[in-house]
Design a protein around this nucleic acid. Sequence first.
DNA 1: CTCTGTGCAAAGCGTTTGCAAACGA
DNA 2: TCGTTTGCAAACGCTTTGCACAGAG
Lengths: 133, 133
Amino acid sequence: MSNYTEKLRKHNLKVTPQRLAICEALHVNGHLSIDDLYNVMLKKFSSLSLATIYKNVNLMVKSSFIKEIKIPNAKSIYELIKDSHAHLVCEKCGSVEDIDINIDFVISDVLKNQNFKVNNIDLVLSGICKKCQ
Amino acid sequence: MSNYTEKLRKHNLKVTPQRLAICEALHVNGHLSIDDLYNVMLKKFSSLSLATIYKNVNLMVKSSFIKEIKIPNAKSIYELIKDSHAHLVCEKCGSVEDIDINIDFVISDVLKNQNFKVNNIDLVLSGICKKCQ
DNA sequence: CTCTGTGCAAAGCGTTTGCAAACGA
DNA sequence: TCGTTTGCAAACGCTTTGCACAGAG
């Protein structure tokens, strides 16, 4: 149970029960779609509004507190910002797994001549996971 | 001017003027959003319907004839399927540039133990382009 | 106390669908 | 000719907005 109260404040976000719950849900589940997030939080806040999820998620993305991962042929998922990593998406069962893979050196190497300042790397690998093969 | 009539047939897609125009537009421009595509093609087909674009683009994606590239904080773009490459997206001007960068070896290396069969690699680098710096 | 966040309902907007006419093979 | 595609309009579904009330600081 990390101290998300502090973390929210550091990002200039007011602390509300709903926002803390978003943090907890993402902390526990790793990454969730908007709907997943809504359904998880509904257990705690019976009168929760989808609009609240959208407003907060958008705000938290803008504040670089969470990040949106766009997935081919599927809904986006959101996760707390952490070290750079790639996502393995199974085309069969839809599962998404994080993997630690560092391609920074490849990229910096290639971009040395390009003069492009990289702020963010999105790497999504689609295929068939171990279980589905 | 490649022979897209043949290529469409190979993918079991009937050849229509609209479909050929999509091919040409993507061939010439590299990658376009749905709206871009619509506006480009409108010059040729004054009574073109957006629905036609959507229907064809969806069909061509399913047939692995073109590919959707999802971009952070922006509309998706579509391109003819070609050799694996990454995309450089400028967060300032929105330009998208292809770069030849092969990370297959890194990935196969990491995935050797994971037992994940990779079918597709999406690599999008966001940042600031040469012109905008 | 003031300003921001929440929930609700309505509005907005990109995308999909159904249908009749046109077209490709 | 027969099945597919096109264009149009309506429907759909996800996301955003406006507003009154509740809650954070």
